[in-house]
Design a protein around this nucleic acid. Structure first.
Length: 515
RNA sequence: GCCAGGAUAGCUCAGCGGUAGAGCAGAGGACUCAUAAGCCUUUGGUCGGCGGUUCAAAUCCGCCUCCUGGCACCA
């Protein structure tokens, strides 16, 4: 059976993980986990892009081998995945044999077919940064900026891929497949870009300038450069050329940042695949950026400077919740500690955490720690159940439309409704009564609250996997498995032994001094 | 300059032709099972500006202003 195959972009090894990396992994993970909840078999790939000039330079500056630098980066990025509870099934590194083999295989194939050719290029070369410069790198006065040091005009031979030959084909493809890129306005941007002619793509560097790369199979004096290395990870990781490849490819989603949509993922990659006779991925999801409005980040809680510190401080689920709730996929969003704390306190601690706490506490106090049965169906109960049905169907649609922030909004509206329901029934008042009818209301109320909590966290599982399972545990059941079953209002909790009340999201110590 | 996205309550945003909405923050209140949480009530906006279409415009059209990003071949 074909799996649901989803990827993130691979991160560049010459850098430390930051908010953008973390967000992309969480977003992809939310999609991957939600698909699993829907019963699909998912294959989730992320990884590291390790070749190239910057890695070579940084390693040289530090006096270590490039691979040592990459090993470090791999540790950092894999640790990030662990810390965020990312459920990736694989982590590819472009220095692995399985990757290099496929890159060379593809290059050789294209070369044999005459789709790669050798040509000369003359341009302005900076010896200091070891790069060719573009005309727009010049200062306004026409001089080269000082940072480039000496700039000389040189001629160099390189290999080129016949990108331009496929321009019309790509335009046609995009017109025929308006949903290829999400959000749609991004696809329009690509078509806009394709209105001007595109040139062929230089895919090599001479080894004397760049040694840290994959040698061209047909000319060992060169290594391949950037795109024919990095992009190929999407197919090399799932066994291109082997039988099992069919189980994965085509990918269902490439999740990327908007910065690498045009031209790499929307132009180079589709054309590379087309040229190599490989089917195209089903869709590309281009997300926006986090704008940091947080100069005050350091002040408020004393020691939080980096957004990633929030993971350690508040837990992965709080971080995952925040970035998913606050970002409208495709657009940019603001990140600040104040916004984070606001979400954490009001949504997680006050609405959800406190609800779990009061529910468990009352079940312990009034029902000896056993979930009672609901024997009454009054107006408060039917209203809450009706809202649940709406929440459930509405969320499913929103998930399908990538509107995760809206889905969370809906889910928390339901959680707030449970708190409202609790006030309507006020079991803590009726618990003092000796009237059996009052007793039935108390039991119904607590059963209803417990069930509401169970359903809520089941729905939250893709975003807050740890919390979902933890709450299930507190309610005396194993974790969430499948939405098909777990989102149905039921009496599965009845007679379950519950745990003593726990604080899911403790209030931060010094949150009031904010702004 | 060209293209795209955005400009709606103090903050983050929804609404996209029919008497201005949500959450948070602020104010007041009743309660006490709970993380001084939750619940109820409430203050608050000439929907960026100017014109136009329409019986009716945040909502459609035109012009303008201000943010954000992209404009390749990083050879």
């Amino acid at each position: 059976m074909k799996k649901f195959y989803i990827t993130t972009a691979i991160d560049y090894a010459n850098g430390k993980p930051h908010l953008g990396h973390a967000y992309e992994k969480v977003l992809t993970d939310v999609i991957a986990r939600s698909r699993r909840m829907m019963g699909e078999e998912v294959h989730f790939l992320t990884g590291l892009d390790e070749h190239g000039q910057k890695v070579q330079q940084t390693a040289r500056n530090r006096g270590i081998e490039p691979i040592e630098l990459c090993d470090e980066a791999a540790r950092d990025f894999q640790a990030l995945c662990r810390d965020l509870e990312i459920s990736n099934d694989d982590f590819i590194r472009t220095t692995e044999d399985r990757h290099k083999r496929v890159v060379r295989q593809i290059l050789q194939k294209l070369y044999d077919e005459g789709q790669i050719y050798k040509a000369e290029y003359t341009g302005h070369y900076s010896t200091r940064v070891e790069q060719f410069l573009r005309e727009r790198d010049r200062n306004e006065d026409g001089e080269w900026p000082d940072e480039y040091g000496e700039v000389v005009e040189i001629t160099e031979s390189n290999y080129f891929f016949k990108l331009g030959a496929y321009q019309d084909w790509l335009i046609g493809f995009l017109n025929d497949n308006p949903d290829f890129i999400f959000p749609r306005f991004r696809q329009k941007q690509v078509l806009e870009f394709l209105k001007d002619p595109i040139n062929d793509l230089c895919i090599s560097r001479p080894v004397e300038r760049l040694a840290w790369g994959i040698p061209l199979p047909f000319d060992e004096e060169y290594v391949t450069y950037v795109w024919f290395d990095a992009l190929v990870n999407y197919i090399s990781a799932v066994g291109y050329g082997e039988e099992r490849f069919e189980d994965y490819w085509p990918a269902d989603f490439h999740v990327i940042g908007k910065d690498i949509l045009v031209p790499p993922h929307a132009v180079y990659w589709p054309i590379m695949l087309k040229a190599a006779g490989v089917p195209l991925p089903r869709a590309i999801l281009a997300h926006g950026w986090w704008l940091k409005s947080g100069q005050k980040m350091a002040k408020s809680t004393g020691n939080i400077v980096d957004p990633l510190d929030l993971i350690g401080e508040f837990g992965p689920d709080a971080f995952r919740y925040f970035v998913t709730r606050e970002m409208n996929v495709g657009q940019d969003s603001n990140f600040s500690l104040d916004l984070f704390l606001s979400r954490y306190n009001s949504d997680l601690a006050n609405d959800l955490g406190n609800l779990v706490s009061r529910t468990l506490n009352m079940i312990g106090r009034y029902c000896d720690g056993t979930v009672p049965g609901a024997s009454i169906e009054g107006e408060p109960e039917s209203e809450l159940r009706a809202l649940w049905e709406e929440t459930r169907t509405g969320s499913a649609e929103l998930y399908a439309e990538m509107q995760f922030h809206a889905a969370l909004d809906k889910t928390f509206a339901f959680i707030r409704a449970i708190n409202r329901y609790a006030e309507q029934r006020s079991p803590w008042k009726l618990a003092k009564s000796a009237d059996p009818e009052d007793r039935r209301i108390v039991e119904t109320a607590l059963a209803t609250m417990a069930e509401g909590v169970r359903l809520s966290v089941a729905l939250l599982k893709p975003v807050m996997p740890g919390t979902a399972d933890r709450v299930c545990g507190l309610l005396g059941m194993t974790g969430v498995r499948e939405w098909e079953k777990d989102l149905t209002w039921s009496a599965v909790l009845e007679e379950n032994r519950t745990a003593p009340s726990e604080i899911l999201f403790p209030r931060p110590k010094s949150e009031l001094s904010g702004s």
